[in-house]
Every structure is written in C-alpha cells, then in structure tokens.
Amino acid sequence: MSKAGSASSDSLEREIISIFNEIFHVTPEPDAIAGYLRFHTVYGPSLLRRKYVDITKIISKQLDLEAIELFLRYCYPRNLLTCKFWVCAYLCEAQQGAPPSGRSRDTWDFVRSPLICLVMLGWFGVRDSTKWIKGGFQVYRHHLI
C-alpha cells in the first residue's frame, strides 16, 4: 500500500520521474531522486496526516497530474499530491540552480512588459479553469482520493 510515507522506493522513484518529466520537463538527477526518497524517510509521519491521493494510479493510468493537483489544492489544501509537487519543485530548483520553469525557459522570454504579463495571466486563468474541471472529473471517475 503506497500510503504516503510508507511507499516503496521504486514507486517513489516513478513518482519523481513522472512529476519532473510532466511538470518541469526535465529528468531528475540521481541526487534529486535520493533527496526525494530521503524526504519520505524523514517526513513520512507528517505525510500520513495529509489527505491521501492514489498517486500510483494517476501515474499508471497516465492521468493529468497537473489538473488533478489543481483540483485537489482547491478542495483539499492539505493533500498529499500538492505536498509532493512542492518537494519536487524544490529539488528541481536545487538541481538546476534556478527555479523550474515548467516548460522551456525560452518560451516565456517574449514576456518582457507588464501588459504581455497580464495577458499571459489571463490565458492561464482560462486554461486553468478547464484544467480544474478536468482534474475534478478524473479524481471522481478514477476514485483517486
């Protein structure tokens, strides 16, 4: 049973590889994977207090990780998936020496003025509304919580 901190190291490795690939578009280095495993050893008990999410099922069924996280963050702010995303983001930042960009850093290089920045935020608002609905649908259809 991969409940929070008691997950096997193989499934944790699959988790970090999936999150890094799908969300940050980079491959985790061995040090990042080791850090992720260490986090679960050190903070395992505190993870058990969070709302359980079946991450193994999300990965095996290749569901939309980002959409599910967005939905869960609004419905269950202290859920396990958001916590794992946060850890991965920190590890990715340490790996790259810069905050993760989510996609190629160059993609956002055209955003150099306040107006374009606001347009982008508007676009994210629309995009994430659909993501939220998609995430909610997947959570209940696949019984992820």
């Binding site: 996280e69 995303f85 983001a89 993760p100 989510g102 996609r103 850093r105 994210f124």
Partner: peptide
C-alpha cells in the same frame, strides 16, 4: 529566498504558478 517558497502562493496550476515565479 528560494522562489519555490512561493510556489503555492499564486492561484493557478503549477505551470501558471511557475510562470508567476519567473515573471511576477
């Protein structure tokens, strides 16, 4: 501080929030 400290202080999906860390 590490930008990731603020990752979930923005209201968007993780991609949107990473954009905010980068540009806001």
């Amino acid at each position: 501080v590490l930008p990731c400290d603020f990752l979930f202080d923005f209201p968007f999906s993780v991609s949107g929030n990473l954009f905010c860390l980068s540009k806001i």
